[in-house]
Write a protein that binds this DNA or RNA. Structure first.
Lengths: 145, 145
DNA sequence: TGTTGACCTTCCCATTGTGGGAGGGTGCAG
DNA sequence: CTGCACCCTCCCACAATGGGAAGGTCAACA
């Protein structure tokens, strides 16, 4: 179904982006301002909804708003070299790989700790004892996601 | 070396927790207030530094401040059942597993997209075309870490 | 003694992305 | 005409951390 005049609620439903976030994206300049009706309501067409869907999808894939902004620009630039897009994607993949490695290392540690803890009524608990022992170069888990 | 009277800077260096964070932890009640000297400076002993090290280590393992708070309470409660600690650790492991699964799914998608993108001067780019295609039940990557 | 520099203190602001809610206007259906 | 479901703009909150300003303190050195 093609509709070229929607309130923000319908655009939200079709794109999967909350109305709150649509307004926010517009505020911070990620999206251009959409036209307003005489009553001040934002007016969305299929074109705008398509952009919102693009944003939703890239966000789901874990790109930051900054990266989404770049991708949007590349998307609308018909002459851009595909190299940039590919690099962005590959950087992102590398980032995910690194974080997964970090998380696996942490899991390994935790599994080791949990294995030696009885987990019953007794108070003896090697986990806590170990937590109290500082490590040398332990670095915090990387944030985001 | 054992020192039982340090400024926040030394306590920070020994524990690996920034002075900024030490004050913050105290503010939000994660840590009890330390004694002050007559000049108003916080005064740390080895005991306090040990607690800070505990916090640092649990933070590095990805526990939230809330969870750290629980672990601290369990740590200082000599009679607590080890069950609680073990459950906390296992919940955390399960959480990490879930997030790794999510991230791997995203990586798989991104790898598929990147494979078909030439990544050269040409503008043709299947990544962007695909990003513009909305998926059905794609859900955002879970945050934290 | 006086100055300098390295500390310490508190307080405020920014970050990232999202949700909640107040207080008010609008529009359609019954 | 009334009620309800929208829409609008603002402000607040989150988690955890860093940055920086404005001011007090202390030790070392000339």
């Amino acid at each position: 179904m093609v509709r070229t005049s929607m309130n923000i609620g319908d655009a939200s439903e079709r794109s999967g982006v909350s109305a709150k976030m649509i307004r926010y994206y517009e505020n911070v300049g990620l999206l251009p301002s959409v036209p307003r009706r005489t009553n001040g309501y934002r007016d969305y067409g299929d074109q705008e909804v398509a952009v919102l869907q693009f944003v939703r999808r890239t966000r789901d894939l874990g790109f930051s708003l900054d990266e989404v902004s770049t991708l949007l620009a590349l998307w609308s630039d018909k002459k851009r070299p595909s190299r940039e897009v590919k690099r962005l994607a590959e950087d992102h993949i590398a980032d995910l790989e690194r974080r997964i490695r970090e998380m696996r290392a942490v899991m390994k540690t935790l599994r080791g700790l949990a294995k030696h803890c009885h987990g019953d009524e007794r108070s003896e608990c090697p986990i806590l004892d170990d937590l109290a022992t500082p490590r040398k170069a332990s670095s915090p888990l990387t944030k985001r996601h």
